[in-house]
Each structure stands twice: as structure tokens, then as C-alpha cells.
């Protein structure tokens, strides 16, 4: 009898009318203008983000996100993150479908795309954005995320996941990745579906990552250590970034990363930033990195401006 009542209640709730509504569409975007030494010289890039929350029965339940990146000099526009997300009560669980940044290591909480100092995912994972489904959420101080994606155009399933322990000023995460992916990639190719560097083979990748971020007052530390295999061969790497806020909007930062895969690749850089408020910043930096074509020394002057508005 009790079971029958439960079933009747469930059917009734499924048949109950659902109220759906949506408020303002949030539009944000940014401009990244740079003058730098090397092949790229002067260039500008920009992006636009659209975000719409859809309410169901008086609470936020669906989130639609579309991000368009104009590419270098706006010559190669492409979709960045584009997904639909079903948000469970208070976001304790979420299901996301579409194209998104995979939950792995520092990437899960820090996208260095528009910064002068960049993280190592093009060489350490050869993956950043991918298309598929993700389940994520939080339980107390713990965040979790697991995603099944299609390998950014490789059409081989890739499994990524991250568990993290979140404190006010500190978080530490443990990540896993398994799938068939290009051995290496560039910052441009990992953003575009199905685009690979010429002559780079596909390999079976396994990765175990440990990352930590520490906001210690004016100091911010980000670090990541990776171990894994490429077609059974042992690979490893690490990344450390330090940023120090100074007075009146100034800050300085340094980073260093190394990846020991089919070849040894490393990068190091330093940046001085001035934040003018309202999303505007001027940055001057130097980056030294091993690229496929050889070592590169790059001096960068960047003007960055972003905005956000509800329509």
C-alpha cells in the first residue's frame, strides 16, 4: 500500500505542470591586443560569451553557455565552451552536455588562455576543450567532476575526472585522464575540434595529476605534477606559477613548466601587470619556451579589457 502511494506520488509529480521562465541574457567578452617579438608580431584577439539561466518552478535549473573566440586577428573564429547544463538543487550535482574545458588539473579552475604566462596542457595533455558529457558538483568541502568526451575530433572516447578538496584559500585536486589523443599539440590546435599539428601521431594516453592552488594574501601559488604513459612509455612533468600582488593595481608573476614526453619541452616566463579596474589591464612579459621549431624568446606587451552585462 505504502509502495503504491509512492508510485502514485511520483507519477503525479511528473505530470504536475512545470513553470519555465528566463531572465536577462548575460553577455560578456574581452579584447586581447598584443605586440610581441617573433613571428606573430602585432595581433589582436577577442571573444564573446553568452549565458542564459532558465528557471524551472522558481529556481535556476538550466544554464546555457555559448562562447565564441575570434582567433588571432579575428581570422579564425571558433566555438570555445558551448554547452547546456542541468543544475541540480543548489548545484550539488550538475550534468553538462556540449563542448567544455575538461576537468583535469589546474584547467578545472584556471584557464590561462588570455594571460601572458600559460599552463602546459598543449604538451602535457594535448587536450583542453572537448565535446561530450560531464557530471560535476560538490559535497561539503569536496568538488567532483567526471567527463566522457570524444577526443576533440579523434572519435575515441576520452575519460577525464577530478576530485578536489576546497578550502577558503587553498585547494588541492587529484585528476585522471585516459584516452587516445595526439602526442602533442599547440595552444591553437587544442581549441579547434579535429585540428592537429602535422605529423603528430595519436597515442594511448594515461595521466595522473596532482594540482594545488594557494591564495596566501598577496601571494598566489599554482602548481601541478603529472605522471603517465604514452603508448606505454613513461612520461612526466610539472608546472609552478607564482604571482605577487603589489600596491595600487600592480602585480608581478613568474612561471616554470617542464614536460618530459617524446621530447623534453619546457617554458619559463615573467610578467609585470597593472590592473586599471573595470576589467582593464596592461601586461609586459617575457616567455622562453621550447617549441616544435626550436627555442623561442618572446617579449610581450598586452592590453586586456573585458566586460559583462545583462541584456
Amino acid at each position: 500500500m505504502r509502495r503504491r502511494g509512492w508510485i502514485v506520488g511520483l507519477i503525479a509529480s511528473l505530470m504536475a505542470p512545470v513553470t519555465v521562465s528566463a531572465e536577462g541574457l548575460t553577455v560578456s567578452g574581452g579584447l586581447d591586443a598584443r605586440a610581441q617579438t617573433g613571428d606573430e608580431g602585432l595581433f589582436a584577439a577577442g571573444f564573446v560569451n553568452l549565458r542564459q539561466v532558465i528557471e524551472q518552478d522558481g529556481v535556476d535549473r538550466w544554464i546555457l553557455v555559448g562562447q565564441i573566440d575570434g582567433g588571432e586577428n579575428f581570422e579564425s573564429p571558433h566555438m570555445y565552451q558551448t554547452y547546456a547544463q542541468l543544475k541540480g538543487p543548489l548545484g550539488r550535482w550538475n550534468v553538462r552536455a556540449g563542448r567544455f574545458i575538461v576537468p583535469f588539473g589546474l584547467l578545472a579552475s584556471y584557464d590561462s588562455e588570455r594571460m601572458v604566462l600559460n599552463t602546459m596542457e598543449p604538451v602535457s595533455l594535448a587536450l583542453k576543450l572537448d565535446t561530450g558529457v560531464q557530471m560535476s558538483g560538490f559535497v561539503g568541502d569536496h568538488d567532483y567532476a567526471i567527463a566522457l568526451t570524444e577526443g576533440n575530433g579523434v572519435d575515441n572516447p576520452v575519460l577525464t575526472g577530478r576530485w578536489s578538496w576546497q578550502r577558503d584559500d587553498f585547494n588541492v585536486g587529484l585528476s585522471l585522464l585516459s584516452g587516445r589523443l595526439p602526442e602533442t599539440a599547440s595552444r591553437e590546435t587544442i581549441e579547434r575540434r579535429g585540428v592537429r599539428l602535422p605529423g603528430v601521431p595519436l597515442v594511448d594516453k594515461r595521466r595522473l595529476g596532482l594540482d594545488a592552488t594557494w591564495n596566501d594574501g598577496p601571494n598566489t601559488w599554482r602548481s601541478e605534477a603529472l605522471l603517465g604513459t604514452d603508448d606505454g612509455g613513461f612520461v612526466k612533468g610539472g608546472y609552478v606559477e607564482y604571482e605577487r600582488a603589489l600596491r595600487a593595481g600592480w602585480s608581478v608573476g613568474i612561471n616554470c613548466g617542464v614536460w618530459n614526453g617524446a621530447t623534453v619541452r619546457w617554458r619559463a616566463g615573467a610578467v609585470v601587470s597593472r590592473d586599471f579596474g573595470r576589467g582593464a589591464a596592461l601586461r609586459v612579459g617575457y616567455v622562453h619556451e621550447d617549441q616544435i621549431g626550436g627555442r623561442a624568446h618572446t617579449f610581450v606587451l598586452q592590453y586586456y579589457r573585458e566586460f559583462s552585462r545583462a541584456l
Binding site: G30, I63, Q81, G91, I101, S109, D111, S136, Q166, S308
Partner: peptide
């Protein structure tokens, strides 16, 4: 600006709104 866990470079993103 709360972006439900999204993490692009925005100095004012509210990182963990639900928590």
C-alpha cells in the same frame, strides 16, 4: 559574476557561489 563553475580569466568571477 557567478558563472556556475566556469573558469575563464575574469578577475571578478564568484568562484563557488553554491558552496
Amino acid at each position: 559574476v557567478a558563472w556556475a563553475g566556469s573558469a575563464w580569466a575574469d578577475v571578478c568571477v564568484w568562484r563557488d557561489p553554491e558552496r
